[in-house]
C-alpha cells in the first residue's frame, strides 16, 4: 500500500495547497445534498402512521447523532496519529473538529428532546442512550477546555490526544446501549449494513441528509483547519506570502 499521501500530511504547506482543491467540491456537495434532503424529507416524505409529522425531526436528529459519534472517533484517530507519528496537522484537526462535534451532539440532544415530548411524553429520561450521549457532550467540552487551558501547544496537543483516546470507549457504549440495556430510546432505525426499518421514500431523504451532513462537516473542518494552519505557520515564508496575497485580493 502506498503511504506517501499520509507522510505528506506532515507538511502544513502541502495540506494547505491540497485542501484548496477539495474545498469547493465538498462545499457544493454539502449544499446540494442538504437542500435536496431537507426539502424531500420535510415536505415530500410521507408522514408516519403513528407519529404523524413529528417523525420528520429524524432528518436532523439522526444525521447529527451519526456525526457526533463519527467526529469523536476522528478525534481519537487524530490523537493517535499525533501521539505516535508526532504529526503537527493531527493536533490542528483534533482541535478544529472538537467544537463541530460538540455542536452536533447539542443538536442531537435538543432535537431528541423536542421529539420526545410528544412521542414518549417527556423531554428527558435518564436511560442509557441519552445519558451516554450527554457524557459524549461533556467529553467534547473537556477536549475543548483542555486545548484552551494549556498555553504550550505541544503539551496541550498531548493532553487532548490522551483525553480523546480514553473517551473513545464511550462510543461503543452509545451505539450498543439500546441493545445491552432496557432503554426508552428505540434501537437504530437506520443502519449502513442492514435493511432499514422504513420504506424507501422515508429512508432515501435520510440517507441524503446523512451524506450532506458529512460533506458539510468536511467542508467546515477544512476551512477551520486552513485558517488554523495559517495562524500556526505565521512565521514561515509561504504563510506570509499567502496572507499578503489574500489581503491583496480583498482590496
Amino acid at each position: 500500500m502506498n503511504w506517501t499521501w499520509f507522510h505528506k500530511l506532515g507538511s502544513p504547506k502541502w495540506f494547505y495547497e491540497i485542501s484548496r482543491r477539495w474545498l469547493p467540491g465538498l462545499a457544493v456537495a454539502a449544499a446540494l445534498l442538504l437542500m435536496v434532503g431537507l426539502v424531500w424529507g420535510l415536505a415530500f416524505a410521507p408522514p408516519d402512521y403513528q407519529q404523524g409529522n413529528s417523525f420528520r425531526i429524524i432528518y436532523i436528529h439522526v444525521p447529527a447523532a451519526f456525526l457526533a459519534q463519527s467526529i469523536y472517533v476522528m478525534l481519537a484517530v487524530a490523537g493517535t496519529v499525533g501521539l505516535v507519528w508526532k504529526m503537527k496537522l493531527a493536533d490542528v484537526a483534533l482541535q478544529q473538529a472538537a467544537p463541530i462535534g460538540a455542536w452536533m451532539t447539542v443538536i442531537a440532544l435538543i432535537t431528541g428532546a423536542v421529539w420526545g415530548k410528544p412521542t414518549w411524553g417527556t423531554y428527558w429520561v435518564w436511560d442509557a442512550r441519552l445519558t451516554s450521549m450527554l457524557i459524549l457532550l461533556f467529553l467534547y467540552f473537556g477536549v475543548i477546555a483542555l486545548g484552551n487551558a494549556i498555553t504550550n501547544r505541544d503539551s496541550a496537543a498531548k493532553a487532548c490526544a490522551v483525553l480523546a483516546i480514553v473517551g473513545v470507549v464511550n462510543i461503543p457504549i452509545i451505539k450498543y446501549s439500546v441493545e445491552w440495556w432496557n432503554t426508552l430510546h428505540q434501537p437504530a432505525t437506520f443502519s449502513v449494513v442492514t435493511k432499514p426499518a422504513m420504506p424507501f421514500e422515508m429512508w432515501m431523504p435520510l440517507l441524503i441528509m446523512v451524506l450532506g451532513f458529512y460533506c458539510f462537516f468536511g467542508a467546515v473542518l477544512l476551512m477551520r483547519m486552513r485558517l488554523e494552519v495559517l495562524k500556526r505557520e505565521a512565521r514561515s515564508s509561504w504563510a506570509k506570502a499567502e496572507v499578503s496575497a489574500q489581503v491583496e485580493k480583498g482590496r
Binding site: P47, Y49, W120, T122, L184, Q186, T189, A197, M198, P199
Partner: peptide, 17 residues
Amino acid sequence: DEVLAKHDENYMPPEVM
C-alpha cells in the same frame, strides 16, 4: 404516577398501514 410511550424503530406511511 408517570406513563411514557416507547416508540419502536419502525416507521411507515399511513397508506401502507
